[in-house]
């Protein structure tokens, strides 16, 4: 078969995947998002489902809050996991490292809902942490941790950390250790080595990890809903409410597309600002 033929043959599954599983199911939603039910029950074409988002303060404020928290969680995920990734690839012996990576995977096997309930047991007023702190006499009355933005952030961070570690580890893995040795032989400080050698080498991993974490968090429903408490209206929760509580599928569909467009825009802006290119991230 010619090279061309092979190319077409191989692209078929990709196109099928995109069309059948992604494009077609969304066509109906796209159509719905432009339909509006007037007060007398007739269906008309309208942009008002989208305009509602910009006109009604709660909606865009909720989105801004969701986006800010998602960016925050992404940054936190990087700070928390970078040392772990560095340790696993550069410090510890190879045989240990693969075993430890396996341990990191375990929370993913359990499922998000169960880990979220686990955090509830730890954080509640008479939960493990508060009871321990009170028993050793550090505090007199329980600290309110559960049902706050703090507990929500912890939950989101916990479920997304792994998706930051793995791409960073693969980037760090490919870095030649002798570069670090050479730099320190030439008198570079640890900070300089970190900034000028390690970080640039890991950047593709950080970027792809960052995109995955950001998208996971901004589209999450379970952690904000269960751990988030009384004021943590997440944008996905609003979409859920549109579909299931006010039976307004049209507005729900419009909000879904807004989430897609706005979060993609944030990723695009972040890539531009940091001077990254999407093609490089993939490699």
């Amino acid at each position: 078969m010619s090279k061309r033929g092979t190319f077409y043959l191989l692209i078929v599954p990709v196109i099928l995947w995109l069309a059948v599983l992604i494009v077609i199911p969304h066509m109906d939603m796209m159509y719905r998002s432009f339909r509006l039910e007037t007060d007398d029950g007739a269906m008309v074409y309208s942009l008002s489902n989208y305009l509602v988002f910009f006109q009604d303060q709660i909606y865009w404020l909720t989105f801004v809050k969701t986006a800010v928290y998602s960016i925050g969680v992404t940054v936190l995920a990087f700070i928390v996991t970078f040392p772990v990734a560095f340790y696993l690839t550069k410090v510890v012996k190879v045989s240990y490292s693969s075993f430890m990576t396996l341990l990191l995977l375990i929370p993913i096997w359990i499922g998000e809902l169960v880990t979220v309930y686990g955090w509830m047991i730890l954080l509640r007023d008479n939960g493990v942490i508060n009871t321990f702190l009170m028993n050793i006499g550090l505090i007199d009355s329980p600290i309110e941790m559960l049902f706050t933005n703090f507990s929500m952030t912890i939950g989101l961070l916990y479920m997304s950390m792994l998706f930051m570690i793995i791409p960073m580890m693969s980037a760090l893995d490919s870095m030649d250790d002798s570069l670090i040795e050479a730099a320190s032989d030439l008198g570079a400080s640890k900070w300089t080595i970190f900034r000028q050698i390690v970080i640039p080498y890991t950047t593709p991993g950080i970027t792809s990890g960052g995109i995955i974490v950001f998208m996971l968090v901004i589209g999450d429903y379970v952690a904000p809903n269960i751990l988030g408490g009384k004021s943590s209206l997440w944008f996905t929760e609003q979409i859920y409410n549109k579909f299931l509580e006010s039976f307004n599928w049209n507005e729900g569909a419009a909000f879904g597309f807004l989430l897609l467009v706005l979060s993609s825009t944030i990723v695009w802006v972040a890539l531009k600002l940091s001077g990254q290119k999407l093609e490089k991230v993939g490699s």
Partner: peptide
């Protein structure tokens, strides 16, 4: 009525 109520519920949930 659900439409009225869902707005109210959204605003309460989002309030400080």
């Amino acid at each position: 009525f659900e439409k009225i109520e869902s707005r109210v519920l959204d605003r309460i949930k989002a309030a400080k």
